[in-house]
Nucleic acid binder design. Structure first.
Length: 268
DNA sequence: CTGAGACTC
DNA sequence: GAGTCTCAG
């Protein structure tokens, strides 16, 4: 009878041990996930990542972003869209989740509820349908910006579809996108998520060793104008955002390409 | 494709 | 909050 407390203590220790082990495995899996994302970018696509004006760059498995805390959204989201990524698989839309990777705290989706604005994807769900995990990963609140529905479902949607067309045609493109974040923007919700007045997108293609790029700047309103009307130089966007979009590109090529607002080598 | 919102449980 | 359904451009 007097041995009973010993057994109890041993049993408790075993239970604690099991929970600790589970916790350890879970943490290990999480750190591997983050490390993998960084490794992938380091080994392959580093050159296409823009600079960050905030110092908070997050690498997810299928896109990277730079979070701008005061505006409660990403200043840019960057990803590669390969032809093989394009999928017609219909996937169920999950619920938006707070991106736990944002150390300063990503906005809650409730800020958007009944705000009159869409939770507009920056990395589109339609570009990440190749797996459920990739699709779900776009439903993080670090990957959205308040967008008028007419804009999101209209001219912005048209541009996103054009990017898919180029990805298919050129066997892959790099995409950088976001809202123009500057002072005195309207905000929504308790966390005061800023509503950009303009949105931009930069597309880089390096098919067959030739590098070309094209950039778009759109006012935050729907339009029926053809997409080429919104073409600007990357230099224009860099002046507006303070972001250096392709710092790893050879300077001579970078300077030449970024100064151009020509779209003659892109088919619409 | 891009989404919101109402309704039930 | 989760799941299902309807609706709009």
């Amino acid at each position: 009878m007097n041995r009973k407390p010993i057994f109890t203590i041993i049993a408790v220790l075993i239970v604690i041990g099991i929970y600790s082990y589970d916790f350890f495995i879970e943490q290990k899996a999480k750190s591997d996930l983050i490390k993998d994302g960084q490794t992938v970018k380091a080994l392959t696509n580093t050159f296409f990542l823009p600079t960050s004006t905030t110092g908070q760059v997050i690498h997810h498995q299928n896109y990277s972003l730079s979070y701008n805390e005061p505006y409660e959204q990403a200043e840019w989201v960057a990803y590669e869209l390969k032809a093989s990524h394009l999928s017609s698989t219909n996937r169920k839309r999950p619920y938006f989740e707070i991106d736990e990777a944002i150390k300063t705290g990503a906005a809650h989706w409730k800020n958007y509820k009944k705000s009159g604005y869409d939770k507009g994807h920056l990395c589109p769900a339609g570009d990440r349908r190749f797996t459920k995990a990739a699709h779900d990963e776009t439903f993080l609140t670090s990957n959205i910006s308040p967008q008028e529905h007419q804009f999101n479902a209209g001219v912005w949607n048209r541009l996103e579809q054009k990017v898919r067309y180029w990805a298919k045609k050129n066997d892959g493109v790099f995409v950088v996108t976001g809202g123009i974040l500057n002072e005195d923007l309207k905000t929504i919700g308790e966390e005061e998520v800023a509503v950009p007045n303009q949105f931009y997108k930069v597309i880089l293609d390096h098919t067959n060793g030739k590098t070309k790029m094209i950039a778009f700047l759109m006012n935050h309103e729907n339009s029926n104008l053809p997409l080429y009307k919104f073409v600007v130089s990357v230099d224009t966007l860099e002046a507006l955002t303070g972001i250096d979009f392709f710092p790893e590109l050879e300077d001579r090529i970078e300077n030449q390409l970024e100064a151009s607002a020509s779209y003659k080598s892109w088919s619409f």
